[in-house]
């Protein structure tokens, strides 16, 4: 009888460990989880670079929105910028595109935009306050928010046209 108790406990422990290993295999222990999918997008009031006006996110509800966090010193951001400009033009009137510039000097940002084009409004987050509110871990990161203000997905790599179209379809 006692022997069966020991064997049962050993089996439970073994299968428990196997389950933990199974769940752990193939996952990156250094990857930061995305926790805010399906939640309301954090509100913000932030300066628009070209006009200087303050943009209140509460006034933006009612239309799907793409928020792209980027920085002037970020190479991949430079690579994806044409994709964002293209998508902003293609979906004009249906989706609101906003860039949120973090960890960058204001003057360097203006110079960068003059050089690479400003196909959609850019908002300036000098202390990365909005970035932390959104759970940003690096740049570029892009949030897709539906018209009810719910975060539908986040893409933490440079955007390509196919991914952009697929993600936009989820919020339209």
């Amino acid at each position: 009888m006692q022997r069966w108790v020991v064997i049962s406990v050993a089996l439970v422990a073994t299968f428990g460990l196997l389950f933990v290993f199974y769940k752990g295999f193939g996952t990156d222990p250094h990857a930061v989880p995305v926790m805010n999918i399906g939640t309301q997008a954090p509100p913000f009031k932030i300066k628009r670079l070209d006009t200087g006006e303050t943009i209140d996110s509460a006034a933006l509800k009612g239309q799907p929105m793409v928020l792209n966090f980027w920085a002037t010193w970020c190479g991949p951001c430079k690579g994806e910028h044409p994709v964002l400009n293209w998508a902003a033009a293609k979906y004009k009137g249906r989706v609101a595109f906003y860039g949120i510039v973090v960890e960058s000097e204001e003057e360097a940002t203006r110079k960068w935009l003059a050089e690479h084009g400003e196909g959609f409004p850019q908002l300036y987050d000098p202390k990365s306050t909005i970035a932390v509110d959104y759970g940003i871990t690096g740049v570029p990161e892009t949030y897709f928010i539906d018209k009810a203000g719910t975060i539908k997905s986040k893409y933490a790599n440079p955007m390509d046209p196919q991914t952009m179209e697929a993600r936009l379809a989820e919020i339209l």
């Binding site: 202390k127 990365s128 306050t129 970035a131 932390v132 509110d133 940003i136 871990t137 690096g138």
Partner: peptide, 10 residues
């Protein structure tokens, strides 16, 4: 790192 500074500010 910059993001850690921002988080500490928060």
């Amino acid at each position: 790192s910059s993001i850690a500074r921002a988080q500490l500010d928060k």
